[in-house]
Amino acid sequence: MKKVLNSDKKLGIKQVSPYAVSAVMLIVLWWGLSLVINKPALPTPAAAFKEFYNQLYHGLFFHAWVSFYRIGASLVLALLLGVPIGIILGRHKRLDSYIAPMIYLTYPIPKIVFLPVLLILLGYGDSSKIFLITLIVFYQIMVTTRDAARGIDPGYIMSVKSLGAGNGHLYWHVYFLGCLPEILTALRIALGTAIAVLFIAEAYATQEGLGYFIMDSMGRISYSRMFAGIIGMGLLGFILYLGLDFLEKILCRWKHLKK
């Protein structure tokens, strides 16, 4: 058993290298594909990264920032709404029995179809994009949180109640902290959806954000610029994902214990 643990540790030190190897392999794959297809719509990685570097201070950084805060604001809003509602529904079964049918009816509706409605109602600014992403992410977080809160063992509640805990203490020490791993997992999964929705929301009726940058480059038939935008979008997702991963490791240490 000890030997196994030791070899695990050695892997831990070299953990950076698997990512580097994967990154190199993906770039080689892209490079090969671009040579085979040999059309301007798929530039070589070298050309794309060079353009990415050039564009960075010619507007790309600004567009990436706009996309970042749209995603960030949406995730924060979805958390602020989804977590408390999820916990309350998970705790109060009666209330949940009234609300649950409404969730099941509206959950499968692809909310992206409301984009035109939102553009008309909320305008072409940030609010329509943030609202749409929040709406979609909210569902995933709320449903996961509710299920996690339902699964909290009543023994923990009794035990903390016996210490004189009121509702506020129960919500924080038992429900919120107990559901946090599931909440963060839901957030990580929701991130992929959020970025996809962001791209579509930014592709129409806006002049800011990476989605606009990519579609604008396509319109200009500047494919290497388009790929600079795509690289930007990929990096944005990757950085956010790493951030959430890091948060989970710090806040949920108890989930990663070696016994």
């Binding site: 023994g155 009794m158 035990s159 020490h173 107990g178 946090l180």
Partner: peptide, 9 residues
């Protein structure tokens, strides 16, 4: 209590 007294987190 017998079990569940302590919060695992």
């Amino acid at each position: 209590l017998q079990d569940y007294g302590l919060l695992p987190w």
